[in-house]
Simulated scan of single mutants.
Amino acid sequence: MHLSQLMAKNDDRRGSWTPPIEPPGSVIVTTANESASNKQPANRAAVAPQSQARSEPALTATREQLPQTSGSEAALRQAIQQWSQAWSGQNMAPYLGMYASDFEPPKGLSRTSWVKQRTQRITSKKSIRHDIQNLTVQINANLATVRFTQIYQDERLRASDRKTMHWVWRQGQWQITRESTD
């Protein structure tokens, strides 16, 4: 359920406001204007759209001013999409840039050997299609584990595998520290 759905559900309960239930690790940002607007007006339906329009810019500004000490699930999902798109687009700099400096390559490869191998495998293809399905995300502070079905296709191969990736929130971005394919 999205936050907007939870908030709408709470809006239906006239006279008793309760905060929406957020997943662990989520942060709800409010402003002084929002806490004052929690007092219910008599004709709430007529006032609500106006108060939302006024408070939204303040909420956005407040969110931008706060330093992010941990990455959000939305930021993680966006990073996963960027990783997949970089792979599909054979864009090696953004693709390799998603991997943390302490990334543990599989099969005991050194980082240098792994980069050389991945670059050769990816850039030698005429085209690549990479899709993600059934994505699940678990975040604990600045660490995350994601699992999904990976659909890979190039001019000679089509494969579907379960993939597990470990990410860390570091230097203001999500980075991959480990990955494995089942």
Rank of each mutant, 00 (worst) to 15 (best):
W174V: 04
A93P: 08
R54S: 11
W17L: 01
I151F: 10
N38G: 12
T164I: 06
P41C: 02
E64T: 10
P106H: 03
R54Y: 07
H130F: 14
T30W: 00
I122F: 08
P23Q: 07
N134F: 08
M165H: 05
S101A: 15
I128W: 01
D161N: 15
E155N: 03
A61P: 00
I139E: 02
Q85M: 11
S55A: 13
A159Q: 15
E73M: 04
Q82W: 10
A53F: 03
W174L: 03
V47K: 09
V29Y: 02
Q85K: 11
N134L: 09
Q138R: 11
H130N: 14
K126D: 14
N134E: 12
R44F: 12
A79T: 03
T164H: 00
Q50S: 12
E56D: 10
R54T: 11
D182N: 13
L135W: 04
L135K: 02
Q5Y: 08
A32P: 10
L109G: 04
I151K: 09
Q52Y: 08
R129C: 07
N140Y: 05
T62L: 05
S55K: 10
N10I: 05
S88M: 06
K39L: 12
R162Y: 11
T164A: 02
A46S: 12
E73I: 01
D154G: 01
Q173W: 06
I176N: 03
S110P: 00
N33G: 11
A74M: 03
